[in-house]
Amino acid sequence: SLSVDNKKFWATVESSEHSFEVPIYAETLDEALELAEWQYVPAGFEVTRVRPCVAP
């Protein structure tokens, strides 16, 4: 099958004044980091952490 098993990760994104967490959907932690950097670094943010979303 061609289905992709995307998992939810939380990326911590920082600017000079703010820090916030955004959801990233990817297959692996490395891919989540790449996606977060691709989305947020060009906008002037720094991705400081990516972690798996742990269900309660």
Rank of each mutant, 00 (worst) to 15 (best):
W10E: 00
V54H: 09
L2H: 12
W38A: 14
V54S: 12
N6R: 10
L35T: 07
V50L: 06
A26Q: 01
E34P: 00
K8L: 15
S15A: 05
L35M: 12
Y40P: 03
I24S: 00
D5M: 13
K8P: 05
L29T: 04
W38D: 10
N6Y: 15
R51I: 08
V22M: 04
F9D: 01
E34C: 10
P56T: 12
F45K: 03
L2P: 14
S3D: 10
S19N: 05
A43I: 09
S16V: 08
A36Q: 03
F45D: 03
F9T: 00
C53L: 04
W38M: 15
S19Q: 07
V50Y: 02
R49E: 14
R51K: 05
R49N: 15
V41C: 06
V4N: 13
Q39E: 09
P23Y: 11
S19G: 03
H18K: 11
I24N: 00
H18R: 09
R49Y: 14
V50D: 02
Q39W: 14
A26R: 02
S16R: 11
E31K: 14
S15W: 06
L29M: 10
G44C: 04
V4L: 08
T28Q: 03
D5G: 15
W38V: 11
A36L: 07
A11N: 01
T12D: 02
K7C: 15
W10T: 04
V13P: 00
K7E: 04
E37C: 08
V54P: 13
E14P: 01
K8Q: 10
S15N: 14
V54D: 12
I24W: 02
E34N: 11
S1E: 08
A55L: 10
G44Y: 02
P42D: 07
W38F: 13
F45P: 01
D30P: 05
S19V: 12
V54I: 13
S16I: 08
V50C: 00
P42R: 08
D5W: 11
T12S: 05
A32V: 02
A36P: 02
D5R: 14
W38R: 15
P42C: 09
L33Y: 13
E27D: 11
V13C: 05
V41G: 15
R51W: 13
Q39A: 09
A36I: 05
L33H: 07
A36Y: 03
E27H: 14
